[in-house]
């Protein structure tokens, strides 16, 4: 199995542990990851230019297409943005031809062949979890028994569902199933599907902080020991808001790290 790994802008510079743990876990499961010369997924451009956003995204999709690979991303925002661009390209013919022109300047073309996938569903398939499974997956050698974990889904993995095509946006289960697969116990917390607040941290910091703190307090009150993430934006957001405090009260952990631990991979390879 082979994918083009799309790390996006945040992971390499701000959260290298996510790249390390993703690579470690996927290598362990026999997935080959290819690095292409990807650029920004286009998310920041959305506020300025719809075409600019789609061109940015389509360039990446076209690169993967040229390499004959599907795209795998550990970032839910990149997932949402790349898939959003696919939808727009699909439904808006004039846009499609404008984008084709821009891509042609680089000798690229988009036809929609390259699919975009997030790491979580791939892992769910690889470690063979069934919905509602209660036993650790076969790949797990050091089950994280007893660890109470709150799943942070991230907005753009879930919504809008027709674009994200990730899980039931109102009642997703994939993350909890994956947590159970490591032997840990998922906690049910009222704000699990809420926005982490990250998109507002530049425009309206106090409001963003209000949102983030509400989530952390909720997860703690629900008995979580660990807040498990699958998106660099959410992850960094929780860490940033808690970093002022003497010691962060709710530990954040990337899902790839949790799974890596459960598979007995060395901590260092997981960026821990």
């Amino acid at each position: 199995m082979k994918y083009a790994l799309f790390l996006g802008c945040k992971i390499p510079s701000r959260l290298p542990a996510y790249e390390a743990s993703t690579r470690a876990v996927l290598a362990h499961l026999g997935v080959t990851l290819v690095d292409l010369e990807f650029t920004c997924c286009g998310y920041p451009a959305r506020n300025v230019s719809r075409d600019g956003f789609v061109v940015s995204a389509a360039r990446n999709l076209a690169l993967a297409e040229r390499a004959g690979l599907d795209v795998l991303t550990p970032c839910t925002c990149c997932l949402g943005t790349l898939r959003h661009a696919q939808v727009l390209l699909d439904e808006d013919a004039p846009l499609r031809s404008r984008v084709a022109q821009a891509l042609a300047a680089d000798g690229l073309a988009w036809s929609g062949k390259a699919a975009v996938e997030h790491v979580l569903p791939l892992l769910a398939r690889l470690i063979g979890t069934n919905k509602g499974a209660t036993v650790p997956a076969a790949a797990v050698s050091v089950p994280r028994t007893g660890l109470r974990v709150a799943a942070q889904y991230g907005c753009h993995a879930l919504r809008p569902a027709n674009v994200a095509r990730f899980d039931n946006p109102m009642a997703p289960t994939i993350f909890e199933t994956l947590i159970r697969a490591t032997g840990a116990t998922p906690v049910d917390w009222p704000r699990r599907l809420d926005c982490c607040g990250d998109p507002l941290h530049e425009g309206n910091p106090p409001l963003a902080e209000h949102m983030t703190r509400a989530k952390i307090a909720d997860a703690l009150a629900s008995g979580a020991e660990v807040l498990c993430t699958a998106c660099p934006h959410c992850h960094l957001r929780f860490d940033a808001v808690q970093s002022g405090a003497p010691d962060p009260s709710l530990r954040t952990l990337l899902y790839t790290q949790l799974l890596g631990q459960a598979m007995g991979l060395p901590a260092k390879s997981l960026g821990l």
Binding site: K131, N168, A171
Partner: peptide, 12 residues
């Protein structure tokens, strides 16, 4: 629906 394994197609 999620618990019974009904595959949902939202917004489509």
């Amino acid at each position: 629906m999620a618990a019974r394994g009904v595959r949902r197609r939202h917004l489509s």
